[in-house]
């Protein structure tokens, strides 16, 4: 029956682990916004096409476009 002492220790330790995980989740702001992540998870990241170099050459035309309005 002495095994029960150890089992209780293990179960308490695990429960403590869950408590720590909960505290961490609150701290990292997971409880503040419970809607946006549900939408965010559905967005796909498109692989960047090889001919599409996002660099200063692209930033320039963008600026000029902005000035139009």
């Amino acid at each position: 029956m002495n095994i029960i002492f150890m089992l209780i220790g293990v179960s308490l330790f695990m429960a403590l682990g869950f408590l720590v995980a909960f505290v961490w989740s609150v701290k990292s702001g997971q409880m503040e916004d419970d809607y946006t992540p549900s939408v965010r998870i559905l967005f796909d990241d498109k692989p960047i096409a090889p001919n599409d170099n996002v660099s200063s050459s692209q930033a320039e035309p963008m600026k000029s476009d902005l000035n139009q309005f």
Partner: peptide, 10 residues
Amino acid sequence: GVYTLLSENN
């Protein structure tokens, strides 16, 4: 304008 901007930036 917005469309042009977005399409240029993929």
